[in-house]
Design a protein around this nucleic acid. Structure first.
Lengths: 201, 201
DNA sequence: ATCCGACCATGACATTTGTCGTGGGCCCGT
DNA sequence: ACGGGCCCACGACAAATGTCATGGTCGGAT
């Protein structure tokens, strides 16, 4: 029996996944949580073999939860499972110690397959996503540029960003300009959107 | 037996929902599709009692699919099921003839409950969402303001929008300014984001 | 030690954007 | 016929934004 912990913020989806995994003869769902913060406590209690984590969750990020979990329970393998095939997610998830990465577009068998393989000590990554991730490459953005873009992404003005990062307005504009150039965008709004899509956040 | 058609673009989620609904004794999933365009043909073939449609799907919108379906098969009830509780989705879904509206955050029982009630001829709407929808009210944006805002939402410049809508740049700025005022935003990027969230699109 | 490149910061400058006032055309309800 | 609301357009002006040249710091290579 493979003991599985399930973490996804959408209750309905989580329940449905649990029902589906429960149909498999060799899989047992031993815990279900809805936030990143609940992952570690639940894992301590139930000692799962595999943790299936969604990336976006309230509270702690799925990736942060994975890192925590791997640090404390190295015997528990992690499969990340997310809606968006953002290339950046993949690399960060693997860096955090995840052994598998599945997109929610994938056929259902692929998920149970991933759980079994990961439990057997193998790594499993969606091939199309891996290719895209390699093609997109690493972020050409510098640290400051990322920070400034991230602040800009929810529509605040330049002076908002400047205050929030304790910089001069001119400096903020400068970083923004560089980011716009590197992304090939024409406005900082577009630059933020593109960088987000490519995982350059 | 309640015959259910299932439409969701995320294969994994769709399969999981099918597994969950299949566990109920009185429910039978007779069709699964992944795009809005496939809904009507599949419905013709399988004559479902209830159609469970996701809002965002490739090809035809879930809402458009609902309207089509209701027009041709009035006996088939529709439950919309979506990730985001955008108030605008709710009103548009009901206008399209949906009898139920469920958010993916809801507990699993609520979904099977919704299917049963809708099949019995009742309407079922997530109460918290209904309240929010009424509170947010109708869109105060005029037609042009919506168009301009929609074009603006992917980061193009003013002159892009002007060319795309065959308007003067000054006019575009005017509409944008009005939209910014009505949403309470400070930049058009923020205005677009807020309008989107509130279903004012 | 020196140079070089990458990053950060800043101020000047041109352009774009947001705001406001004005005016005209259209359709609808009174 | 008359107002009222919406749409379109223009001009003007202040503010925000994007671009550039410049200079500072730090670490590694020569």
């Amino acid at each position: 029996m493979i003991r599985v912990l399930l973490a996804d913020d959408q209750t309905l989806v989580r329940g449905a996944l649990a029902a589906m995994l429960g149909l498999e003869a060799d899989i047992e769902v031993v815990a279900e949580v809805g936030t990143g913060d609940d992952v570690l406590p639940a894992a301590r209690r139930t000692k799962p073999d595999v943790a299936l984590l969604d990336v976006q969750m309230p509270g702690k990020d799925g990736i942060a939860a994975a890192a925590e979990l791997r640090a404390e329970m190295p015997g528990c393998q992690v499969v990340m499972c997310t809606t968006f095939g953002r290339p950046g997610y993949l690399s960060r998830a693997l860096a955090a110690g995840a052994a598998g990465f599945v997109v929610k577009d994938a056929p259902p068998e692929q998920l149970v397959d991933a759980v079994r393989r990961v439990n057997a000590g193998l790594r499993v990554v969606d091939p199309s996503l891996a290719a895209e991730s390699l093609a997109t490459g690493q972020s050409p953005l510098t640290l400051r540029e990322r920070e400034v873009l991230a602040e800009s992404s929810d529509g605040g003005t330049i002076s908002d960003i400047a205050k929030s990062l304790h910089l001069s307005e001119g400096t903020v504009r400068n970083h923004l300009s560089a980011a716009i150039g590197k992304t090939g965008a024409r406005t900082r709004a577009e630059a933020a959107r593109l960088a987000e899509e490519r995982g350059w956040l």
